[in-house]
Design a protein around this nucleic acid. Sequence first.
DNA 1: CGGAATCCGCGCTGATACTG
DNA 2: CAGTATCAGCGCGGATTCCG
Lengths: 143, 143
Amino acid sequence: MQYGTRGFGTYPEVTKGECQENRMKENSEVFSMSESCPIRNVLDRFGDKWSILVLLVLSDEEKMRFNELHKAIGDISQKMLTVTLRTLEADGLVSREVFPEIPPRVEYRLTLLGKSLMPHIHGLVKWAKDNQEVIVSKRKQYA
Amino acid sequence: MQYGTRGFGTYPEVTKGECQENRMKENSEVFSMSESCPIRNVLDRFGDKWSILVLLVLSDEEKMRFNELHKAIGDISQKMLTVTLRTLEADGLVSREVFPEIPPRVEYRLTLLGKSLMPHIHGLVKWAKDNQEVIVSKRKQYA
DNA sequence: CGGAATCCGCGCTGATACTG
DNA sequence: CAGTATCAGCGCGGATTCCG
């Protein structure tokens, strides 16, 4: 089992590197910007195991209940679904509405901010779909 | 330190869920497709800590040597840079050319496949740049 | 210069049990 | 139904050392 398969693990104080200016040249798009770069601060949020999947599933329906999401994704644990949703909510990408009923009902939906992100996610997914076979085969060839 | 900050950790046999059909509705874009979905198989590769950053840096120059990449990224360890580059190479996104000289010289560059991915990455980065302040502030508000 | 190899700690993840 | 709480384990990532 070589590395690179996935994932993180430890992650102590590494990001203190404040994105290191990244000295992007004329291509510009200077990342640094004061204390923290968007790549580390924002994109890392989708580097977790489930965020993108949750966003994709949510983008298919106007609103979804907790268990709808759970079934739609399938192999996510309750805990991680909760954690992922909370994070997305904290970032303002997903809204959470609790209905004071019994049994409880909670509806999740994308916020406007969340919706504004989706085109880019879908672009990435389309690329992934278009190229996954090539990539998988290359991956096998690779000694 | 609450969860959601980042990262993975253990990751044993989870992906066996073969993307669970994901029953995408009329919005279509059926993911499943036989044995594995592109999201899990391809996008997960960029969920690691460095891949996107390496691709971005590489997209700025036609070719880069190992230590150029190392300096450009700044706070990546040699090991992780090597691992990341090897993975990207295995996936066919980056090419690696070794020059039989002393001292050794190795040049990395994006392949055509890698270049075809960049527009989507840049789209994501632009979104992140445009919205990072909002997100960071929302994150702070969130109790 | 550009790695390879090794060791090891930290914290995310999943499982399980419990609750209003 | 929609969570919360607790816990243990494992694998990622960093640091270090060595090499051609």
